[in-house]
Amino acid sequence: MTATPKIELIGVTKTFGDNAVLKGIDLQVAAGESLVIIGTSGCGKSVTLKCLNGLITPDGGSIKIDGVEIFGGDRAAMEDLRRRFGMTFQFGALFDSLPIWENVTFRLRQRQKLTKAAARDIAVATVTDLGLAPHVIDQYPAELSGGMQKRVALARAIADKPEILLFDEPTSGLDPITGGVIDRLIIDAVQRLGATTVTISHDMASVRRIADKVAMVHNGVILWCGDVKDMDKSGVPEVHQFVHGLAEGPLTQTAAPAQQGRT
């Protein structure tokens, strides 16, 4: 028998106003697999990721987790589903008004009564695991560097041992060394948890380190999807151009729509 994919998207569409962002995304991720989504800025990678745990409701198509349609149930069903996910956001999205220890243990403390001391102990253990100094837990997000914020966001996402991890550009804006460290942390965490992961990345070195499979989004559909080792011989000009960061190629003519605000 063929195993049910952990995550399955069939013909997912999403339009904002008159901006048709997703025009029919088809994607499958097997349990324990690490998929990386690549594509030009503004092509809808973040929107796709947010559809997976219902933060954005698609206009059409179907999204199944373990074979179960996620938009079929009520709010409580969606809340239960979200518990199985951990997610980091493109811009960190740490809670500005809370110190690091409260950020890291946020979800744990929603689920169970924890004394302040116990929560702080867990926070210290988690951040030191990720190579941060213990005193960081009393600082606020704005006091940390970009790389440290990304680590804290990672800590917050995995603190509760979710089955599925979603990472939106975990290494973008970081120097190559810190980026490498984050990649290592992701690989470690995933192996430890046995989680299925979907990561968005622009960083090809990072893609090669963390991906089992790669999918390229272009013009609202999956242009190519395959094993990371086949990425260089895909035969698709757009993929070739993207992977090698070439200025000339098919992607330049179909530039992404003008960005308003942020990507």
Binding site: E79, R82, Q90, Q110, R156
Partner: peptide, 21 residues
């Protein structure tokens, strides 16, 4: 301003992903 900033920096979505309405 506070809630709007949380919206545009995805902090509200983050709450949803952390078992908080």
């Amino acid at each position: 301003a506070e809630i709007g900033t949380m919206r545009v920096t995805d902090q509200i979505d983050a709450l949803d992903t952390l078992s908080t309405r």
